[in-house]
């Protein structure tokens, strides 16, 4: 399965979804069309916001780094934070906030422990530039990268339960290697968590 199929499996029909960093709204649109979800997106880029509005999605311009206190406790069935936590100033605070707001949360992270990232650093001696991390160190929005191990340790530290987890290779597909040694062969990790 790919990442989108897993999200579709994890989200319940007719449920209320909050997507933090919803981009152009691709995920929310699919979920509302296929699973009849009620959705709200949070986004900071105005071109993306306009695209969301064009798709008929509800979207709020808000900087996640400035807090999420405007959302009530357990006010959404599922909070999605896909490829967003690594760009935030305070990932730990954000993780605690999403698990406060959502009954369940789906968090996707790029794995800095992926073999090609490790090899890239080992061989070149420079900060890795790869397909999933394409920016130079000084010009990247990804200011808080972590490995699968790091992320799971942070969850333990925060008292967050990992309900399910899935790992995908660089083309976004699960395979036997990603299942066997996720922190080495998983390019992307997806977690279903709650607190």
């Amino acid at each position: 399965m790919d990442t989108l199929e897993v999200i579709k499996n994890w989200v319940k029909r007719d449920s209320e979804i909050l997507d933090l960093g919803c981009g152009k709204g691709e995920i929310l649109k699919i979920l509302s069309e296929e699973l009849n979800t009620t959705s709200l997106g949070i986004e900071i880029n105005q071109e993306n916001i306009t695209l969301c509005i064009q798709s008929g999605l509800n979207v709020i311009q808000q900087n996640i780094d400035e807090g999420l206190s405007n959302f009530g406790d357990k006010s959404f069935d599922t909070v999605i934070m896909s490829q967003t936590i690594q760009v935030l100033r305070e990932p730990k605070k954000a993780l605690l906030e999403v698990t406060r707001i959502g009954k369940e949360c789906i968090v996707t992270i790029p794995n800095f422990g992926y073999w090609s990232t490790r090899l890239n650093l080992l061989v070149s001696g420079k900060m890795p530039v790869t397909g999933s991390l394409p920016n130079a160190w000084h010009d990247t929005p990804n200011i808080h990268l972590c490995t699968i191990k790091d992320f799971e340790l942070l969850c333990i530290e925060c008292g967050i339960n990992i309900i399910e987890k899935r790992f995908f290779d660089s083309s976004g597909i699960e395979n036997s290697l990603t299942r066997l040694l996720p922190n080495l062969f998983g390019s992307t990790a997806m977690y279903k968590i709650s607190k």
């Binding site: 209320e16 009620t38 709200l40 105005q46 916001i49 969301c52 509005i53 999605l57 509800n58 979207v59 709020i60 311009q61 808000q62 405007n70 959302f71 009530g72 006010s75």
Partner: peptide
Amino acid sequence: IKAKKDVSYMEI
């Protein structure tokens, strides 16, 4: 948002 209404917001 609290009243669960269809709302979008932009700050220009």
